[in-house]
């Protein structure tokens, strides 16, 4: 379905935004419940994340200067804009503007705002956290980009909705998961790094640097940060789905695939310890990058899996 009028486009974008928020926030709660069962606990209610966010919004917020406040707004705005460009099932708010590189650049605005705001709070631990987050980004972006460039080269397009459409031609067999399994494994490891799941939780590390960038956040700002967190998870998981799992043709398929990816990542996180930051970089530059280059060679030079 292609929508051409601007007001309708904006409405569609807002609808995607609302869907992203409610689905991802519910799923976070459901995942907490699943993880609790994994620990043999009862676990919170499935809507616990909503309660947390609304509670934070009802608290008073302390400011640490205008850079801190502005950075949060900028991060939230940047991430929300990125979500609105995401092709969802067959809805696209801005047709023709769902090139992969748009997400890479728009996503950086959000991350930059977050980094600015955290450093603006003046706490040294926040500075360390931001530094680690950016270092980790250097680690996972390189293998992820190699895999994605191989896909773009192989399929001849960088539009997310077209990549998804190509993968939907012959059912499961045309998914990149089946065609390029090695690259998918590398990209999934990078996805764990993007989500900050546990072997790559170095920049949060609550017991070590007191939750890193979030150390000085409280009340409303922390609430905004949690919404931002949900949106950025949505972008990362949706990107992975559209690139490797064939996007989604219907709501049920979308929900199931999304849930499978996110729950798998969370369960892996529960069984892992935490890397140090130098170990993170060494790991990403050894295994995922080797797998990614192997896959790229197979796609680009040998023509396998296209």
């Amino acid at each position: 379905m292609v929508i051409n009028q601007l007001p309708l486009q904006i409405l569609t974008g807002l609808a995607i935004l609302a869907f992203a928020f409610f689905w991802q926030t519910s799923l976070s709660g459901i995942t907490r419940k699943i993880v609790a069962r994994y620990h043999k606990r009862y676990g919170p209610k499935w809507y616990q994340e909503f309660r947390d966010i609304f509670k934070l919004m009802s608290k008073t917020g302390v400011t640490h200067g205008w850079v801190y406040d502005f950075g949060v707004m900028m991060a939230l705005g940047g991430i929300m804009a990125t979500v609105m460009f995401m092709p969802l099932m067959k809805f696209t708010a801005f047709p023709g503007f769902d090139n992969f590189f748009i997400y890479v650049y728009l996503f950086a605005v959000g991350m930059l705002g977050m980094a600015m705001s955290a450093v603006g709070s003046g706490n040294p631990l926040a500075g360390i956290g931001v530094m680690r987050a950016l270092t980790q980004m250097v680690g996972y972006e390189v293998p992820f980009m190699i895999v994605v460039l191989a896909i773009i080269n192989g399929h001849g397009t960088s539009s997310l909705s077209q990549l998804a459409a190509i993968q939907q031609q012959a059912g499961v067999l045309s998914w990149n998961l089946v065609k390029m399994p090695i690259g998918t494994v590398a990209a999934f490891i990078c996805l764990l790094g993007m989500l900050g799941k546990k072997p790559f939780e170095t920049f949060i590390a609550p017991a070590e640097i007191a939750s890193g960038p979030m150390v000085e956040y409280g009340g409303k700002q922390l609430g905004m940060l949690m919404i931002l967190h949900q949106f950025s998870i949505f972008i990362e998981v949706s990107l992975f789905m559209n690139l490797f799992l064939g996007g989604a043709a219907n709501p049920l398929g979308f929900a199931l695939k999304y849930m499978a990816v996110y729950v798998l990542a969370s369960l892996i996180s529960q069984a892992m310890g935490r890397f140090k930051i130098d170990q993170v970089i060494k790991f990403f530059y050894k295994i995922p990058i080797a797998l990614a280059i192997l896959q790229a060679v197979m796609v680009v030079y040998l023509g396998w899996g296209v």
Binding site: K40, R41, P44, P206, A207, V215, Y217, G218, G219, L222
Partner: peptide, 22 residues
Amino acid sequence: MTSRYDMERLGMGPMATPRQAD
């Protein structure tokens, strides 16, 4: 906090800094 009494079912959880906590 852990599996026997499971504080998380009441929605409680540990936080790292005073700013975040209730």
